[in-house]
Structure formats: structure tokens, C-alpha cells
């Protein structure tokens, strides 16, 4: 179980996260939505300590970290329990697809290379890129790169995978294959926290949708409830804007 309590993050004094509380059960799929600049990505980055929170507690399984006093060892432990999928993929440019997935197992988990590569091949199989094992990121399409990015996160066997707008950098033609892989993970009950603007994905896959605005969690609930009957005017306003541009299948 993952528990975030009173998490605060300020940039130059201005609060970007203003006391976030969130609990995530094992196997739960949570989608975070909200306007740009409301701290969704920052929330994910704080869980992985890519940003250092200014206050608050973070519990990952049996590890509870007081973020103001987090030690180096605690930060490393938190990172090992949380895997991150980046908007811009951020694959290691000097490593092949296989090596990107195996890298953490070799360096962080100290697996022998042969064992790590065998696991990486299994993962490439699962993400449908077995034939791209020896390809470098520069020669892969955006969709393929992001699938490898997800593969790298899968290899970490973290308590939770954090997805930071995983499809926002992709050309539209590649979005579906990445969402497809994420749905596959969801079916396997991989715990996931996903920041995305893909409302269809949230509707289909999320156990819970969290709406954030100005550094606060405004409202949360199952997608059926949040999308059909949003309680807060800010949620209603946001959904009206976002859904206005999406095709309603019933109308065509």
C-alpha cells in the first residue's frame, strides 16, 4: 500500500503541491487529471524523489519517509519501490532496447548480466518488441521507445509504476499501442498512478480518477461517478473543456 500524507512542494516559495493526501491500494489503477500546471507531474516526481518534497510523509509498503528528513538511503529505497515512465521516454541513448530494460537489474539489483538479459528478453516479448532487442533508441519510433520505457519500469518490479503523461509526446498514430500496453498491465493488476489527458483510458481502465487543481486534490472517485456526476464546479468546468473536443460516438 502507498500512502501520501500532507505532501507539500514549493517552487521559489509558491506552493505547487499544497497538502496532498492520497492512498493507493496494491493493484489499484489511479488516473490523475486536471489542468496544466496544477502539480500532477510534480506529485509523481515527488514520489520518486526526482523532486524533493518540502513537507509531508510518504509510505511505500513498510517504509515511511518524513520527506523533510529523507536520507540518501531512504531516497534510494523510495526510488527502487517506484518506477517512472517519462513523457519524453528518456531511454538511455547509449544502450539498446534490451540493455535499457536490463540496466537497472544489473546495476541496481546486482543481477548477473546473463540473468538480467534473460529477464529483459521476457519483458521485450511481453511488450511486443522481441525483434527490437538490439535496436538503439534513435532507431525506434516514438511508440516503440515508450513501450521500452514501460518495459524498463516493469523490470524494476517496483510497488508502483508512475506514468507521467506517457502519450503526450507521441504522434497520434503511436498512442494506441502505448495505451494498449498500459491496459495490458492494468489487467495484470499492476499498481499504477497515471497522469494523462486520455479521458477514454481513464474511463475504461481506472479504478479511481483523481482531479487536481492548483496543487490540491479537488475530487476523486470511480470514473463512472467522476465523469458523469462531478461534484465540484472546477471539475465540471475542466471536464466540459476537455470533453468538448472529443468525438461522441453516440452522435455520429
Amino acid at each position: 500500500m502507498i500512502k501520501i500524507e500532507q505532501l507539500v512542494k514549493r517552487f521559489n516559495g509558491a506552493p505547487v503541491l499544497d497538502g496532498i493526501d492520497l492512498e493507493i491500494e496494491q493493484g489499484e489503477i489511479i488516473v490523475v487529471i486536471g489542468p496544466s500546471g496544477t502539480g500532477k507531474s510534480t506529485l509523481l516526481r515527488c514520489l520518486n524523489f526526482l523532486e524533493r518534497p518540502d513537507a509531508g510523509y510518504l509510505t511505500l509498503g513498510d517504509l515511511t519517509i518524513d520527506s523533510t528528513k529523507a536520507t540518501r538511503a531512504e531516497i534510494l529505497a523510495a526510488r527502487r519501490r517506484t518506477a517512472f515512465v517519462f513523457q519524453n521516454y528518456a531511454l538511455f541513448a547509449n544502450k539498446t532496447a534490451l540493455e535499457n530494460i536490463a540496466e537497472g537489474l544489473i546495476v541496481v539489483n546486482r543481477w548477473p548480466k546473463v540473468k538480467a538479459h534473460a529477464r529483459a528478453r521476457e519483458i521485450l516479448e511481453r511488450i511486443g518488441l522481441a525483434d527490437k532487442a538490439d535496436a538503439y533508441p534513435a532507431s525506434l519510433s516514438g511508440g516503440q521507445q515508450q513501450r521500452v520505457g514501460i518495459g524498463r519500469a516493469m523490470a524494476a518490479q517496483a510497488d508502483i509504476i508512475l506514468f507521467d503523461e506517457p502519450t503526450s509526446s507521441l504522434d497520434p498514430e503511436w498512442v494506441e499501442e502505448v495505451l494498449g500496453l498500459m491496459k495490458q498491465l492494468a489487467r495484470e493488476r499492476q499498481t499504477m498512478l497515471v497522469v494523462t489527458h486520455e479521458m477514454g483510458f481513464a474511463q475504461d481502465v481506472a479504478d479511481r480518477v483523481v482531479f487536481m487543481d492548483s496543487g490540491h486534490i479537488v475530487e476523486q472517485g470511480p470514473p463512472s461517478q467522476l465523469f458523469r456526476a462531478p461534484q465540484d464546479p472546477r471539475t465540471r468546468d475542466f471536464l466540459r473543456k476537455v470533453l468538448a473536443n472529443q468525438i461522441d460516438p453516440a452522435a455520429t
Binding site: 526526482l50 526510488r79 527502487r80 517519462f86 528518456a90 531511454l91 541513448a93 547509449n94 541496481v108 524494476a156
Partner: peptide, 24 residues
């Protein structure tokens, strides 16, 4: 982003220098 990706999987500063940053 290369540094961030390396940190995100739990590498130390020394490891990410040696394996990711310096080779590039």
C-alpha cells in the same frame, strides 16, 4: 532526462556517471 531516468531506477550518482553520462 538521461540523469533523471537513471535516478528514477535507483542508480547512485557514481553509477549514473559511469554507465550513462560519461559514455554519452
Amino acid at each position: 532526462s538521461q540523469t533523471e531516468a537513471a535516478l528514477s531506477i535507483g542508480m547512485t550518482n557514481g553509477q549514473l556517471m559511469r554507465r550513462i553520462v560519461l559514455p554519452q
